[in-house]
Amino acid sequence: MAKTVLQVENLTKRYGNVEAIRGVSFEVQEGEVFGLLGPNGAGKTSTIEILEGLRTPDGGRVSVCGLDPQRNPEELKREIGATLQATSLPDKMRVLEALKLFATFYERRRSPEELLKRFGLAEKRNAFYSTLSGGQKQRLALAMALVNDPRVLFFDEPTAGLDPQVRREIYDVIEELRREKKTIVLTTHYIEEAERLCDRVAIVDHGKVIAQGTPRELKQRSGDTTRIEVRLAKPASEATLKGLDGVTDCHALDGAFILHCQRPPQAIVSLVKHLEAEGNELVNLEISTPSLEDVFIELTGRRLRD
């Protein structure tokens, strides 16, 4: 049985009149990659920054490596490593210099040289921070998070704002850490990231966890059906589409219809026949296997990225 390294119970946080976190609870086991998936403003960053001891919770209980971030911030800082959002380093700080400086703050540390090599920054060792590309800055941030050989890692939106190719580079790095059985908590609003990197995912919306489990478990909840998204030339009703042969469920979303079906070919045939009879036309059709996005849409009636 794996050890629980992180516990969050009924966490709440408000900013003025806004309730950013409304009773979030989850646990993370040792060696697990746990993802908080949700749209911007769902309370992910607030949650992760409370775990890091950077923000004060209003209610609930938090324990990281057996420590309370509020009561033992100094001990906690030695046990964790993190990448933040909205952060930076001085423009004229060199890559290796930054790693070495932060390494001196800890008693337990990893070799800055080795981290540079591992994160593909060896050639950039003497480059100023301001000259690095977005991907290089993020790789440096990841290397810096590892400088104290932490027991738990927190990555807040590790690939936000990076282009797809660079994003995949970062995935490779995080997957390597996953293979090493590092305990990682990450937040993301990218479906792909959560599905590819996380052992378990909590879907967060409006400050609440609305579903939790392995990506597979979550997808099974959405019926494990194929999803057909259609746009029609003329209006149609959800009810009639739902009644078509082969369609198990249907709902409207942003002017399109999402059909869930067990047998897609049959559903498409009956859909086309129906449209012909109605004098309606297909504008667009997309078929996809279920993803966490569908789980989110099913639970909230919205897309993840609005």
């Binding site: 890091e52 964790i80 952060t87 380093l89 703050f105």
Partner: peptide
């Protein structure tokens, strides 16, 4: 620029 936040994560 959020530089202080990064230092705050470390035991400084």
């Amino acid at each position: 620029q959020g530089i202080l936040r990064r230092f705050r994560l470390a035991p400084v």
